[in-house]
Amino acid sequence: MAGKEQELLNVYLSGEIHTDWRDQIIAGSTGLEVAFSAPVTDHDASDDCGVAILGAEPNKFWHDHKGAKLNAIRTRRLIEQADVVVVRFGDKYKQWNAAFDAGYAAALGKSLIVLHGPDHQHALKEVDAAALAVAEDPQQVVQILRYVLTGQLPG
């Protein structure tokens, strides 16, 4: 609707941290009323936050356990605050944390967009079934956000 101010859309960008897909979505969303949030994408900081803050652990299980719990505080809060959760599954690694985030978002009734290539269609069929959209590239996510906020189709 012309002249009507857009309402801010909170979008949480979850998933793989080894490519620039987040940057592509953020750059493509210029001019839209979107606030983006994400997990800590510095792999070492994410892995080591627990022991850096709470103290060293000689056993790798407890080292990872501390970090996972601290990261969960951030992740839960940001997913709960999000209007839309985008979960990216990359090609290089199995992102079990991304699948968990997708399930958590679905359980909370969040609007879920899943982002992955065609090679993951079978493996992610249950995750895809919970999503409101399944995109193959970041530009499609941008187009979804633009449509949701403005009603405009691409082109």
Rank of each mutant, 00 (worst) to 15 (best):
E80V: 11
K110L: 03
G117P: 00
I79V: 10
G50E: 07
A105H: 03
G103W: 02
L108A: 00
P118K: 14
F36G: 01
I113G: 13
Q6C: 01
D137M: 13
L112C: 08
K94M: 12
H122M: 10
K125T: 06
I113V: 15
W62D: 08
A52H: 11
E5P: 02
R76H: 11
V114D: 08
F61N: 07
M1Y: 09
T150M: 03
G67S: 11
V134A: 14
A135Q: 03
D137Q: 15
G90K: 06
E136I: 00
A82M: 02
S111H: 13
V87R: 01
D44G: 09
D91V: 08
G3C: 03
V114T: 15
D23S: 15
F61K: 08
I25T: 07
I144P: 08
G28Y: 03
D23N: 15
S37V: 00
L32Q: 07
E136K: 11
Q81C: 04
K92H: 06
L13H: 02
H43A: 14
Q95T: 10
Q24C: 12
Q121A: 11
D83R: 05
T19S: 14
Q139H: 14
A123P: 00
V148H: 15
R74A: 14
E33M: 12
A123M: 00
Y104E: 01
N59G: 00
Q143H: 10
L115P: 09
E7Y: 03
P138S: 12
K125M: 09
A98N: 06
H63V: 04
N59P: 02
S29E: 02
P39T: 13
L78R: 13
I113F: 04
G103K: 07
V51F: 14
L112K: 05
A123T: 04
M1R: 11
A131R: 03
